[in-house]
């Protein structure tokens, strides 16, 4: 069954790229440009997976993760952080915030699909 994935990144190019990479999975993709917008979107409709950048204006990915975890319906929804290798402490912070996993940018589409297929089995 088709699920809904929310991608959160302030870079449009990145969101578009993720959306494209996920197209073959058959899941619907919705987008948000920052954490705050993502939170609004998450409240207005339930999504099944969140893939979010860490560094964003208004609200970053870590804070978004914490906020989402505070919403009962998102307590157990997988949240994947997009991180960069220059952020070595991120994993600890991500874990503490309640994220499910991480993908290091830059990633390739196969890796992305692999991650998605593991958290959203068909």
């Amino acid at each position: 069954m088709s699920k809904t994935i929310m991608t959160v990144d302030d870079a449009t190019t990145m969101r578009r790229m993720i959306a494209f990479a996920l197209k073959p999975t058959g899941h619907a993709v919705v987008e948000a440009p920052d954490g705050r917008a993502a939170l609004d979107l998450a409240r207005s409709r339930q999504v099944d997976l969140v893939i979010t950048d860490v560094n964003m204006p208004n609200m970053g990915g870590l804070e978004l993760t914490k906020e989402l975890r505070a919403i009962p319906s998102y307590a157990r929804v997988p949240i994947i952080l997009l991180t960069t290798e220059s952020d070595p402490e991120m994993k600890n912070k991500g874990r503490a915030a309640g994220a499910t996993g991480w993908i290091v940018k830059p990633f390739n589409p196969e890796q992305l699909v692999a991650v998605v297929s593991r958290v959203l089995p068909n």
Partner: peptide
């Protein structure tokens, strides 16, 4: 991982399948 398979929210109104993956609601 039952949560990810059947999230508590699947009872929520079925989300429409978006034909293009670019569709964005949150973007103002």
């Amino acid at each position: 991982a039952p949560i990810s398979a059947t999230p508590p929210t699947s009872s929520a109104p079925t989300v429409e399948r978006e034909t293009t993956s670019r569709g964005s609601i949150a973007d103002s």
